[in-house]
Amino acid sequence: MNAELGEFGAQSALRAFGPNAEAALLLTVVMSVAGIVILAIVMGLVWLAVRRTGRPRSWWIWAGGIVWPLATILVLFVFSTITLRAIARTDDTAFVIEVTGHQYWWDVVYDPDGRAIRDANEIWVPVGEPVTFRLVTDDVIHSFWVPSLAGKMDMIPGRTNAFTMVASEPGRYRGQCAEFCGLSHPQMAFEVVAVPPDRFAAFLDELQGEARDAARPELLAGKQVFLEAGCAACHQIRGVAEGAMVGPDLTRVGGRAALGAGMWRMNKGNLAGWIADVGDMKPGAQMPNYNHLSGPDLRALAAYLESLT
């Protein structure tokens, strides 16, 4: 893991950890430098024009207004188009991860055409191997963006967008919805966890199985609360309550680093707070508040969910 990254992982286009982001960063740096130089020259000319008095010639306009911008643009245009051609390729052989945007969370399906393993809000990818993200939405338009890995792409009703990217270093990279999608748009983030390919394969195998058994009595009580309070109407925990697709899959919810779509640290306290008063933490979320649960029930449920790793 990259030690220099903060608690949430990198979310910056200036710190690139993959070829897509690196290409964009190179463009950014080159264009910024060119931009600053051009700005300085133009301002220098303004200064000269103010200080000196002379007879302007029309070749100034030809040179400065037409030839100069044209030359700059041409270089930029070719550079940019070549970069675009390089990053716009979708790789047919790449591993596919389908991400569905919801108000305000992300449904994740690994290998949708094969094993179709479902998870939510945290996406694991193998380091150094191309991954194709297939992007759809269940409601309004969202935009899938992990700045440190690649540029963004929208999720649009009625369409399927896709792009291929590679993470070149292991680490946690934060992403966020980049298209305004309603009330809690600022609270719709996620994390991409890049791990070595063998670790990734192991992760998938582990994920495909059923949820870890509740061994201790406290956790068993929590599992009971989960089933009795009606959580299973929306949430799936494989091996416990299967089939519900309305809310995020909770099979390994405790294993995620963050709660509430990349927003809060995953721990018992936050989990309990979330269940009791989700409307306060994330206004507009579809999940109702469960503040009628008794204190012990709530604690047990939170403990059980946290144990699901």
Binding site: S58, I66, F77, I82, A88, R89
Partner: peptide, 30 residues
């Protein structure tokens, strides 16, 4: 006369620019 000539020149350049990227792509997907 200047206006007409410059207008035509910019138009010509812009028309070329419109078509410039087409040879770069061999399919719609890039």
């Amino acid at each position: 006369a200047t206006a007409i000539r410059v207008c035509a020149l910019i138009s010509v350049i812009a028309i070329i620019a419109n078509a410039l990227s087409f040879p770069f792509f061999s399919s719609c997907g890039g």
